[in-house]
């Protein structure tokens, strides 16, 4: 009985230490990625290749999602506001929620699912097939050559994708509000211009997306690099990337919103 209890406590201690060790490895790994970023100056081609697979290939899902989110927002905002005769404020509601919240958050969630999981799988498979050890054998630093370009590409792509998401969302909202519901197009733009602050709303939204990009890219490349090099471990690592990224995005979004707008 006592032995059983001791086993349980030992198990708890082991999992705590494992988590702490993982967190520590993630931080050490981040530092070495930072150190590896300088290699990008010598080979900008690596970064461009990753910008293509991380950024350009995520573009389609971002465009479609942004369009529909903007259109739905406009419909719902109209439904809520028309009772008060305030349907001209539809644009304010659509634009503010897109710039402040939905743009960065939904883009980051889609980005984690589309690009983050691919990054983890790619790096993890390289590890499982011992390509990373092979590189080390040839005195090529795999972090500098493989990980750093993917990490940087994630950070650079996210704000771009979030901006495109918001812009397409606003256009979607415009289509529904003006073409479908018959609101005045001048009022649509002028209401938004009167209420939306350049730095407060657009700037903070961009900061959010930059932070999310950093976190998602970090989690994705670390999970790939740290995975157990079997097919099962690779699957788990990919799942963890999506789950951890999503949770981190939502939790960080609360913290950032409280810091930025919570006065």
């Amino acid at each position: 009985m006592v032995n059983h209890l001791l086993d349980r406590i030992q198990g708890l201690g082991r999992s705590t230490m494992n988590s702490a060790a993982r967190l520590g490895r993630a931080n050490v790994f981040l530092m070495s990625v930072f150190a590896g970023l300088s290699g990008m100056l010598v080979r900008p081609g690596l970064l461009i290749k990753q910008l293509f697979s991380v950024g350009v290939q995520t573009l389609i899902i971002i465009l479609v999602a942004g369009l529909f989110v903007g259109m739905v927002m406009a419909l719902q905002a109209y439904y809520a506001l028309v009772d008060f005769g305030a349907e001209d404020s539809v644009s304010v509601m659509v634009v503010l929620s897109l710039l402040r919240e939905l743009g960065p958050v939904i883009t980051a969630l889609l980005f984690a699912g589309r690009a983050g999981s691919a990054l983890t799988a790619e790096i993890g498979l390289m590890k499982a097939t011992e390509q990373l050890s092979g590189m080390e054998m040839m005195a090529v630093n795999p972090i500098e050559r493989v990980v750093a370009p993917r990490f940087l590409a994630g950070i650079v792509s996210m704000p771009m994708l979030a901006a495109i998401f918001s812009a397409v969302g606003v256009l979607g909202g415009y289509l529904v509000a003006v073409e479908l519901l018959g609101l005045d197009s001048g009022a649509f733009w002028s209401q938004a211009q009167a209420k939306v602050e350049l730095y407060e709303d657009l700037g903070n939204g961009m900061i959010k997306s930059l932070v999310f990009g950093f976190v998602v890219a970090w989690i994705a490349v670390f999970e790939g690099y740290d995975c157990i090099p079997t097919s099962e471990g690779l699957g788990q690592a990919t799942t963890r990337t999506v789950v951890y990224s999503s949770l981190a995005i939502l939790a960080l979004d609360f913290v950032l919103t409280a810091l930025m707008f919570g006065k």
Binding site: L99, A163, I164, A167, V170, Q193, A194, E197, L198, L202
Partner: peptide
């Protein structure tokens, strides 16, 4: 990406 930022800055912000 830059065009989207520019469009947001010019047409919906102040």
């Amino acid at each position: 990406g830059l065009a989207a930022l520019f469009m947001l800055a010019m047409s919906v912000s102040n």
